[in-house]
């Protein structure tokens, strides 16, 4: 039981100014219980470094927790065409954005996980992503080495010396202080099992110095070790464990529950103004003491309609489309 902590204690492990990353993909398997608590505890100046972002990232931005957003994508898929909070805050100059492409962000996280300072790629040549005029951290003097987690340069070009295939892009490793991952199962010691698509979880977890795993359920290690090939992460890479059923709502979780589309669409619609976001946060974050109270506010009926069918691994009850 040594690693078991509460959501509140988990957020206590995050410091203002930390570079931070998450499990999941766009609107799937994001550690929302922790996101809400980060906002409740009013963490500030976070540097999000994400393979891709989504509802969780836009929420942190809206709440004023984020100084730098470094990624390739933000939005709510079908339920909101852009990150309303990031859009507004970038227009107002309140958040710094640093764009890389999806594959570049993935490779940056992989380089972090591999313990190397950079990695070469062909991805995304010919674009303005590599335009030095748009190196925002550089323009703001943040690549001066004062923060050892921010690389000295955004990208570099190097001739292939081995096969002479041409000029490659070198992208710097992502080196987050902390990764917060929401998964289906974790063992009592920290062995992680992820069902369904793994997204970039392995790279994000291994790149970070500290790892908090939030799971739908904590299970005996012995159970996970009956099928080791199904496991993703060994226990010593996990610093803390939180058990929080439904902890990824309103994002979806393979085998557990659906994306709560109407909830997400309502959030997006309200994020078009800061007042709208603040009112939303008052109702759903500051207005409830913790995630259990949030689940009670959502209600049994709503959660039941999202619950995955154990054969399909998704809900066959939630109404999704127009017909």
């Amino acid at each position: 039981m040594g690693k078991r902590i509460t959501v509140q204690e988990a957020v206590g492990m995050i410091n203002d100014g930390d570079m931070i990353t998450f499990s999941g993909f766009t609107i799937w398997r994001r550690p929302m219980a922790v996101i809400y608590e980060i906002i409740r505890q009013r963490k500030r100046n976070l540097h999000l470094i994400e393979v891709n972002s989504g509802t969780h990232g836009d929420m942190l931005v809206g709440a004023g927790c984020v100084k730098v957003w470094e990624s390739c994508w933000i939005g709510h898929e079908l339920f909101g065409k852009l990150g309303g909070n990031l859009d507004r805050k970038v227009r107002n100059g309140e958040v710094i954005t640093e764009d890389y492409s999806h594959h570049q962000m993935l490779l940056r996280m992989a380089a972090g996980a591999l313990g190397i300072p950079y990695i070469p790629t062909w991805a995304s040549r010919g674009t303005d992503i590599l335009n030095p005029e748009y190196d925002m951290l550089g323009k703001l003097g943040m690549r001066d080495g004062s923060n050892p987690r921010i690389s000295r340069q955004k990208a570099q070009w190097v001739e292939d010396p081995f096969f002479e295939e041409g000029t490659l892009i070198h992208v710097p490793a992502a080196r987050p202080n902390i990764c917060i991952a929401h998964v289906q199962q974790v063992g009592e010691d920290g062995t992680v099992r992820v069902w369904g698509q793994k997204y970039a979880d392995e790279e994000a977890i291994k790149a970070a110095d500290k790892v908090i795993v939030v799971a739908e359920e904590v299970v005996p290690e012995e159970y996970l070790r009956r099928e080791p090939s199904q496991n993703l992460i060994p226990p010593y890479l996990v610093d803390a464990i939180v058990e929080q059923p439904w902890g990824a709502h309103p994002t979806g979780n393979f085998g557990c529950y659906e994306v709560d589309g109407p909830f997400m669409r309502d959030f997006y619609n309200k994020t078009r103004t800061q007042e709208g976001f603040d009112a939303w946060a008052e109702e759903w974050i500051f207005g409830v003491p913790d995630f259990d109270a949030y689940l009670e506010k959502l209600g049994y009926k709503r959660l039941q309609s999202l619950k995955a069918n154990s054969a399909y691994k998704y809900s066959n009850q939630a109404k999704r489309g127009s017909r």
């Binding site: 891709n52 990624s71 390739c72 994508w73 933000i74 939005g75 065409k81 852009l82 990150g83 990031l86 859009d87 970038v90 227009r91 100059g93 954005t97 764009d99 890389y100 492409s101 999806h102 594959h103 570049q104 062909w122 991805a123 995304s124 040549r125 010919g126 674009t127 303005d128 992503i129 335009n131 005029e133 748009y134 925002m136 323009k139």
Partner: peptide, 26 residues
């Protein structure tokens, strides 16, 4: 798919590249 206007001071911030440039370049 990134911004309308100047990137450093955009009029609209769109979702961003996602895998678009990766798929489109490879």
């Amino acid at each position: 798919t990134t911004v309308i206007g100047d990137y450093t001071k955009p009029q609209i911030r769109f979702p961003g590249s996602g895998g678009n440039p990766d798929i489109n370049s490879m």
